[in-house]
């Protein structure tokens, strides 16, 4: 399963690689990273058919996660990728907005990787 992680923090990359070392090794999961919404859309242009899941931060300079979500929902509906929003601000407003724009799930920082793995397992099964 191909997963695209969108976050302006570059250190997310090593973190995910290490956290999902086993899954990557066993080729269960494949991670791609984008540092901004714009970069994510650019990546999706070429690889949207492969990407099954998108994990996106909301607070990013430039295009925000919510904007990215709505773009994805507009442009890629067959098959619609699973989009999970991650944010440091786990408030209700952010959640409502994200769910309204069509997010599949909503996670708050700091990321509970065990919870994330469970959710990924649910998706793959």
């Amino acid at each position: 399963m191909k997963i695209l992680v969108v976050d302006d923090e570059a250190d997310v990359h090593p973190l995910f690689i290490q956290r999902f070392r086993k899954e990557i090794r066993s080729h269960e999961l494949e991670f791609n990273f984008a540092l901004s919404g714009e970069e994510a859309l650019k990546y999706l242009e070429n690889n949207h058919s492969e990407v099954v899941l998108i994990l996106s931060d909301i607070n990013m300079p430039g295009m925000s996660g919510i904007e990215l979500l709505s773009r994805i929902r507009q442009e890629y509906d067959a098959p619609p990728p699973v989009v999970m929003m991650i944010t440091a601000y786990g408030d209700d407003e952010n959640y409502q907005q994200a769910m309204q724009k069509g997010a599949n799930d909503f996670l708050t920082k700091p990321l509970d990787f065990n919870l994330l793995k469970e959710k990924l397992n649910q998706i793959t099964q």
Binding site: E9, D11, L15, Q18, A88, K109, P110, F113
Partner: peptide, 19 residues
Amino acid sequence: HEIQNPLNFVNNFSEVSIE
């Protein structure tokens, strides 16, 4: 937010390092 982010990383990286 700015503090949260590095702290998250600190937590995450230490957790992953322990693992």
